[in-house]
């Protein structure tokens, strides 16, 4: 099997503040193959956006700092690269779409110019050609090229997100990170944006890291899923595996808390009780232990390692240590 496009190994990110150290990402591992879509799911505050920023070398410093691990992109460790080398990758080989399209575009520059900026920067296109190509890219995401001179405030939210997508794809990146790309949008627009992302992913042959708290979105676009909780990836596997047969108590709880249209009438939703731990005061053992319905004494003592109950899947839970894979 060929080497993955992106391999993240034992990544740690901390934020140092006056009140203490927030451990936002605590040794996560995942990889994305060429043409693959990985869904990264988790609640707000689980460390998803920090992970995305770490991949681009954009963790705000201070207070944030990558304190350990490796990020191998096409076999090269990004954490060892200079600022200049990283800048050559950003927006070129690795692009990102942020959550809120309303604020992702600079309000003072026309949309086309903001897209063209990537092209002049990374492909040395002369300004006029860059603008022309920006128009083509806009057309590609369903905005008439003639609107390339419009300012962000003249677009609706959904259209702004299309502009952002065009901007991200301008230089044919190998990896696109989409951080909650539809969260801020209306449901109907969400579907359109997902549709565009899926189409373009095929056309451009890119790998996609889809970050979302919305399980539905991930189920729709992802090939594989990683579930994140309090800075840890607690479960990974194919979409089918994770959604059909969740193993980690957190994943199980997460899926149970979703409304199910096929459920018998009168059955109530089962929310997970409690709150995610404060990243300043993470528990010593498994970070889900305080809320886990199947907690065991060992869970509060040690952090569980990753077990592989099935082919292609990992679960960070002691339950699978005891039973060799079957709970």
């Amino acid at each position: 099997m060929e080497r993955p496009l992106l391999e993240v190994q034992d990544l740690h990110v901390h934020y140092k503040t006056d009140d203490g150290t927030a451990r936002a990402v605590n040794g996560i591992d995942f990889s994305i193959h060429r043409g693959e879509t990985l869904g990264l799911v988790g609640e707000t505050g689980a460390g998803k956006t920090t992970t995305a920023l770490a991949l681009l070398g954009l963790v705000p410093h201070p207070p944030g700092k990558i304190t350990g691990g490796r990020i191998l992109f096409q076999g090269e460790n990004l954490l060892e690269k200079s600022g200049k080398e990283l800048r050559r990758l950003r927006g070129n080989r690795i692009s990102i779409i942020f959550q809120d399209p309303m604020t992702s575009l600079n309000p003072l520059f026309p949309a086309g110019k903001q897209i063209a900026e990537n092209l002049t920067l990374h492909q040395n296109l002369p300004p006029r050609e860059a603008l022309k190509k920006a128009g083509e890219l806009l057309a590609r995401v369903g905005i008439p090229a003639s609107r390339s001179g419009n300012y962000p405030h003249e677009f609706s939210g959904g259209m702004k997100q299309r502009v952002v997508i065009a901007m991200a794809l301008a230089c044919n990146p190998a990896l696109l990170i989409a951080d909650e790309p539809t969260t801020a949008l209306d449901v109907t627009i969400q579907a359109q944006i997902l549709e565009i992302l899926r189409d373009l992913k095929e056309d451009f042959g890119l790998s996609l890291l889809m970050i979302s708290h919305d399980l539905g979105v991930v189920a729709e676009v992802a090939d594989r899923v990683a579930v994140m909780y309090a800075g840890d990836i607690v479960e990974t596997g194919s979409v089918g595996q994770v959604f059909e047969e969740p193993r980690h108590p957190y994943t199980i709880g997460l899926l149970n808390s979703l409304p199910d249209i096929d459920a018998p009438r009168g059955e109530s939703l089962q929310p997970i009780t409690g709150l995610m731990p404060d990243p300043m005061e993470l528990p010593r053992g498994c970070s889900f232990a305080p809320r886990c319905p199947r907690v065991m004494p060992v869970c509060e003592e040690q952090k569980p390692p990753v077990f592989s109950p099935d082919q292609g899947r990992g679960v960070r839970c002691f339950l699978y240590h005891q039973t060799g894979g079957q709970p």
Binding site: T273, G274, L275, P277, P290, R291
Partner: peptide, 9 residues
């Protein structure tokens, strides 16, 4: 679980 909850409260 109750410890965390109490702390938050």
């Amino acid at each position: 679980m109750s410890i965390t909850e109490n702390k938050t409260a």
